[in-house]
Nucleic acid binder design. Structure first.
Lengths: 150, 150
DNA sequence: ATTTAAATAGTAATTATTACTATTTAGGAA
DNA sequence: TTCCTAAATAGTAATAATTACTATTTAAAT
């Protein structure tokens, strides 16, 4: 079971990740990451922006958006939701997952093999009345992998 | 294993669902559902709108949006992505799922119990290079359930 | 056939997100 | 340390998906 590192250790981890990927360590990146890292409430951009602004009055919204995207690229943070640029719909009620390409936003169905099933976590219904479970597998699709090679 | 019904059967199912919930059966609802149901490519609003327009030149975008929301309410279709109104971020790398309330959009962490794990479907990596897996449990949270009771 | 609330068409408004450009700065090299 | 340069940022403007609004239409109950 992964244990959560301290905030300091995680910032160190971020700096390492920046170096590895040749990205600069800027005070904005540190501050924005820090805000997400120390929050337990899955903050949105506005919340992060407001919090960072207290310490860095000149920070711009654009920077917050760009930085969050960078931090995601660095695997330091994740989106709760994919936030596909457009809503996409599915009428297929057979249990299946989705492979979502983070580059082209294409969606592929992953139908489960015989015997496979989605197991609801034990304490899922602590939080409310469950309607459905949605499994998204994120990655880069074969099309985009091929394109990137050229 | 659920088998997929025929288009006619599914439209019948939609009519039933409308009756049950006291919603009207309108040609727009049928047409919009039909488009989603017969597509295998997780269409977006624009695609659905364009297709429906061919048969119903006067249909409005607003109707498509509203109808898709209704069909979702009726459990006849699903969103590939939750499309939370704002992007939300998480820096917690410990494996966990999210309970997302479809009413207030609140997000709750569901940490897995000892021994529980997410099993990747066997043929998930057919489609590309997997980066991560994101499990969303959708429902109505306890807060909203309580509010609705009053 | 009549009635009425629900649903729709057409359009306007909103809002999260992205793009753009001049300026600043991190971090390597001299 | 100082200089240099591409990367990153601030401030603002633009975009685009989605939602809201109002007059009109219509499903379906009476």
């Amino acid at each position: 079971m992964n244990k959560q590192l301290s905030l300091e250790e995680r910032i160190e981890e971020l700096k390492q990740a920046c170096h590895t990927k040749g990205m600069r360590v800027t005070p904005q990146r540190i501050a924005i990451f820090e805000e997400v890292a120390k929050s337990c409430s899955h903050p949105d951009v506005e919340t992060i922006y407001d919090a960072v602004k207290d310490k860095m009055p000149n920070v711009s919204v654009d920077t917050v958006y760009r930085t969050l995207a960078s931090l995601e690229e660095l695997d330091m943070i994740f989106r709760v939701d994919n936030q596909l640029p457009k809503a996409r719909f599915d009428a297929d009620k057979r249990p299946h997952h989705h492979f979502i390409c983070t580059e082209c936003n294409e969606v592929y169905d992953i139908f489960l093999e015989q015997g496979e099933k989605v197991d609801l976590p034990q304490n899922a219904n602590k939080y409310g009345k469950i309607k459905d479970i949605n499994v998204q597998i994120r990655g880069i699709c074969n099309n985009c992998l091929a394109k990137n090679k050229k």
